[in-house]
């Protein structure tokens, strides 16, 4: 408990979900940590890799189906274009709060000194390679390497 009083010095954040509401919490927490002077390693796995995949990072959408918190009945959420519309509305609101779109946010976190990595198992599973990722991604890491890098860090899974 006494260690907590010293404050958090280092964070590892795992981003595992590919929806808008899955990715943003990880990015906001990573950026916020850098703003507090906390060392940050961001690890993207499974569909969370959409946030760093060039073909996908500007197309991430909010889930309107299977997301009870949206308050939209499933059959309405499933209408084509619903997810795109909800995403557009949400992005507009976020922009007014200076929360940037994903590509800009990734650049911001990288400029802030946050380090970005992709998960080896997911990369192999989805048949991706380094050239599929944005230039801010430093390396593809195995889980073991991730744990090594996280020595002394708090780990957050989103």
């Amino acid at each position: 408990m006494s260690a907590k009083k010293e404050g958090i010095k280092k964070l590892s954040i795992i981003c595992s979900k590919g929806s808008l509401e899955g990715i943003y919490p990880a990015l906001i927490m990573a950026n916020g940590a850098r703003m507090e002077g906390i060392e940050v390693n961001l690890f993207f796995t499974f569909f969370g890799m959409d946030a760093i995949t060039k073909k996908k990072w500007s197309k991430v959408k909010v889930a309107t189906v299977g997301n009870p918190a949206m308050g939209i009945p499933t059959f309405i959420g499933a209408i084509p274009g619903m997810s795109a519309m909800a995403t557009k509305m949400m992005m507009k609101k976020m922009d007014s709060l200076d929360i940037p779109p994903i590509p800009e946010f990734i650049e911001m976190i990288h400029d802030a000194g946050g380090r970005l990595f992709a998960c080896k198992a997911s990369v192999d599973m989805f048949g991706l390679a380094m050239e599929d990722f944005c230039p801010q991604v430093e390396k593809v890491l195995t889980v073991g390497e991730f744990y090594e890098m996280s020595a002394g860090a708090e780990i957050i899974f989103t």
């Binding site: 850098r34 703003m35 507090e36 002077g37 400029d111 802030a112 000194g113």
Partner: peptide
């Protein structure tokens, strides 16, 4: 971040 290390905006 280089100018104000350890919490630029703060």
């Amino acid at each position: 971040y280089e100018l104000f290390p350890g919490g630029p905006l703060k």
